[in-house]
Simulated scan of single mutants.
Amino acid sequence: MRVIGLAGWSGAGKTTLMARLLPALGARGVSVSTIKHAHHRFDVDTPGKDSWVHREAGARQVMVSSENRWALMTELRGAPEPGLYALLAQLSPVDLVVVEGFKRDRHPKIEVHRAANGKPWLHPEDPAIRAVASDTRPAAALPWASLDDIGAIAELALRHAVAPEAW
Rank of each mutant, 00 (worst) to 15 (best):
F102W: 15
A139E: 13
S66A: 15
I110T: 08
E56L: 06
L21F: 12
V94R: 14
P143A: 09
R106S: 14
V3Q: 04
N117R: 05
V162K: 14
P138K: 01
N68W: 13
A59T: 03
P138D: 01
D95N: 13
H107E: 03
Q61W: 02
M73A: 13
A139C: 02
V64M: 13
V112P: 04
E100W: 09
R159F: 06
K49R: 15
Q90W: 03
L22K: 05
A163T: 14
A57I: 02
D95K: 02
T136Q: 14
V162C: 09
Q90P: 01
P47H: 05
A157N: 07
E81W: 03
R114W: 05
H37L: 12
V53A: 13
G11S: 09
L156K: 14
D135M: 07
G29S: 04
R60N: 03
R159C: 09
H37G: 13
G11Y: 08
L72K: 04
A131V: 00
L76P: 10
L122A: 01
L17W: 10
A157D: 11
L84K: 10
S66E: 11
G26R: 15
A38V: 12
G78P: 12
V30W: 07
W70M: 10
P127G: 04
H123D: 00
P120N: 06
L91D: 01
I150Y: 06
A71I: 13
A24Q: 12
R55M: 12
N68M: 11
V53H: 12
L91N: 02
G151Y: 09
I150D: 09
R137D: 01
Q61P: 01
A140E: 12
P93S: 12
R106V: 10
A19R: 15
P124Y: 00
H37F: 11
K14W: 08
A133W: 03
M18T: 13
V97T: 15
A139I: 01
R114T: 05
V30F: 06
P23T: 11
E81L: 11
R77W: 06
W70L: 08
H40L: 08
K36F: 09
H113S: 01
E100L: 11
L6N: 01
S146R: 12
M73S: 12
R20I: 10
W121I: 02
A116M: 05
H113Q: 06
N68K: 15
L21A: 11
L91H: 03
A59E: 04
L156Y: 13
W52Q: 07
L142W: 01
A140D: 06
V62T: 15
F102D: 14
R2C: 05
E100G: 11
P164W: 08
D126A: 14
I110H: 08
A38G: 09
P108W: 05
V3A: 04
L88H: 04
H160W: 15
E67D: 14
L158Y: 04
Y85W: 09
D149N: 14
A19H: 12
V44K: 05
R55V: 07
E100H: 09
M63I: 14
E111L: 04
V97S: 05
S66F: 08
R114M: 05
E75P: 00
